[in-house]
Amino acid sequence: MLHQLVTSKTRLRLIVKFFLCEEETYLRRIVREFNDSANAIRVELKRLSEMELITGRPVQNRRYYQVNKNHYMYEDMNRLIRNYVQWDQMVELLEETEWQYVYMASEEQPPHGLEYIVEVGESSLDVGKQILLGESMKVTFVTADTICQMGQTLIMVHSLALEKQGARPLPS
């Protein structure tokens, strides 16, 4: 349903990224990650900033963006987005897995147009496994080498390294 309300694919990707991954990021990093044009991303960052859903702060020649937790709609949006991407079920699944990074791959086909890609170690028993969360959210477990070979746009939404650095743990 969220993909029907937010019709811009770039804006939807940005919203999901900012609400799931609380790490600050900047335009060029997003351009590389989304494999999208700088102008398209800049336009959507401006729109989200104008709505005050994200905040930006200048650091040298860059502007760093992150979700605005003080926005009056933050809690409601957070619940909506996490429900849309079935985050609670994903958290439960990750608790049973040794993982490094969680990505979302954008697909062209509904129902959600999203799929989780979980990076696991070479020796993991989960390598190659695919699971269906709910009725439609696919989760695929792959190695770092496989990620390098994938032709899809992967959006990093959580990192074990970030969690260890004191970032907010996987929220439910």
Rank of each mutant, 00 (worst) to 15 (best):
L5D: 13
L5V: 11
L5K: 10
S8E: 05
S8M: 06
S8P: 08
R11P: 01
L12I: 03
R13A: 13
L14W: 04
V16I: 15
L20A: 07
E24S: 08
E24Q: 12
Y26V: 03
Y26S: 10
R28F: 07
R28G: 06
I30H: 10
I30T: 07
R32M: 09
R32G: 09
S37Y: 06
A38Y: 08
N39S: 12
A40M: 07
E44Y: 01
L45W: 01
L45D: 04
E52T: 12
E52A: 12
P58V: 15
Q60Y: 10
R62C: 12
V67Y: 08
K69P: 00
M73L: 15
Y74E: 09
E75R: 13
D76Q: 14
N78R: 12
N78H: 13
N78A: 10
R82K: 15
N83Y: 12
Y84N: 02
V85R: 01
V85T: 08
Q86E: 15
W87Q: 04
W87N: 05
E92D: 14
E92G: 13
E92P: 00
L93W: 02
E95W: 06
E95H: 09
T97W: 03
V102D: 01
Y103P: 00
Y103Q: 00
E107T: 14
E107P: 00
E108L: 13
Q109H: 11
P110F: 01
G113T: 03
L114G: 00
L114C: 03
Y116G: 02
Y116S: 02
V120D: 01
E122G: 08
S123E: 13
S124V: 09
V127D: 05
L132Q: 14
G134Q: 12
E135P: 00
M137F: 14
M137H: 10
T143K: 01
T143H: 05
A144M: 04
C148G: 11
C148Q: 14
G151S: 09
Q152T: 11
Q152M: 10
I155P: 00
I155L: 06
M156T: 11
V157S: 05
V157F: 03
H158G: 01
H158E: 09
L160R: 15
A161V: 11
L162Q: 12
K164C: 06
G166M: 05
R168H: 12
L170H: 05
L170C: 06
S172N: 13
